[in-house]
Design a protein around this nucleic acid. Structure first.
Lengths: 226, 226
DNA sequence: GACAATACGGAACACTGTTCCGCTTTGGCA
DNA sequence: TGCCAAAGCGGAACAGTGTTCCGTATTGTC
């Protein structure tokens, strides 16, 4: 939806830069300011703070980035792209598809966890962030699918989980991982990925391991619902 | 339907019905209205909507519930309590501690998933919801610890995960599970719990299963960070 | 140097949660 | 019964969001 190739210092490639020079300068300043404010105050920092830091009015910010989400996308775009591109590379160089999947997920988690509040805003059903949500998903789900299928074909993991669900689960697990030293998202994600693997004794089946032996407490909350 | 005597709970407990009758009636109406609005519009529904539904002014809502979070707590208090109490019961009646843990977590997940946006608000680092967060944790973490320890002592699961982390992870996985038919929180939680179990071949160790064999991509995002 | 076209700044709007205070209702006591 | 402080009430007002709008300033082209 948005050109804004820059994300931080980018020597402009060639010419043909559209628009006025001051406009381009402001957009650049905005991206830098946003990146910096996101680091100190988190991704949910007020738009006004970013505008102030960039020395720019509110109108300017909204002309360049129609929505807060668009600004966030622009700031993290090439990091997301780098993550997407790392997938096939890892698959090519890793010992096994499963190893590649693990490393890739770890990269993604490290990315999310180091960006104050990004994970939270990513899963927010707040309408304003749909674009952000969609961008991450569009970019990463195909890569994750590839890794997942490779690992499944190699018989390393069960094959009944969609990449979309895995990505959302991982994203969810990263929420609040900053700002709480007692919560280690990386470990929980590892647990989740471990749960994905075939047990030594059931290699080949794709049934999810039942979580308990008397597992009839499923359909709906019984004791709990009024 | 709900006592909801007090959120903080250091009021005089000898007096049966404190306050004026109209005040009690309004509080009751507020709880009913809130419960109903939460069902239709989600937990993040505007305070004004709840006040309107209860036929009451804003001042009234804030006199009874100093904060949105307190109202949410009051609405769900006895369901949370029921969940807490179900823990020991399950432990007593289930075949194994692990089965009890699984059933208990399932109950909790079913509860969270059926309450529009509760999981999201629960993990929100938004300062206003600390009380809510704290209440859930205070009530449920001890129960979870008990179940976890029982299962660990029985040698069914690894013992290196704190109940707090598990609860937060489960809560996180439930975020957005309503409002997205393609995301099945229950399944992911099952995966997480499955990952908690000892593999048949390593019963006794408590090392987390390494998620990949060439796992050096850990410390910090390398390729990803600008 | 003139003058569209383009872009800018920030006031204003709509929507939150929360506070405040003048007015109303209640219920113990004559 | 009627009185009247104390308890409680409603909603205007405040503070903080994201977003829109438009009069003004800047730019780059002729």
């Amino acid at each position: 939806m948005n050109d804004s190739d820059e994300g931080s210092g980018h020597a402009a490639q060639s010419k043909a830069q559209p628009g006025r020079k001051d406009a381009r300068r402001n957009k650049e300043a905005l991206l830098d300011a946003a990146a910096s404010v996101f680091v100190t105050s988190g991704v949910e920092a007020p738009v006004r703070d970013i505008a102030a830091k960039a020395g720019v009015g509110l109108g300017t910010i909204y002309r360049h980035f129609p929505t807060r989400a668009d600004l966030i996308i622009a700031v993290y775009r090439h990091q997301v792209d780098a993550c997407a591109e790392a997938g096939p590379a890892l698959l090519a160089t890793s010992a096994t598809p499963h190893a590649a999947l693990g490393q890739w997920i770890n990269q993604f988690v490290d990315f999310l966890v180091t960006k104050h509040g990004l994970a939270a805003v990513l899963q927010s059903d707040n309408a304003g962030f749909e674009a952000l949500h969609a961008y991450f998903l569009d970019r990463l789900v195909p890569v994750c699918t590839e890794l997942l299928e490779a690992a499944a074909e190699a018989g390393e993991i069960r094959s009944d989980l969609e990449a979309y669900e895995l990505m959302r689960g991982v994203g969810n697990l990263c929420i609040g991982a900053d700002s709480d030293p007692d919560y280690d998202a990386r470990r929980l994600v590892e647990l989740l990925i471990a749960g994905l693997r075939h047990t030594e004794t059931d290699s080949g089946r794709s049934e999810p391991t039942p979580i308990d032996s008397a597992g009839q407490a499923r359909g709906r909350a019984d004791t709990l619902d009024m």
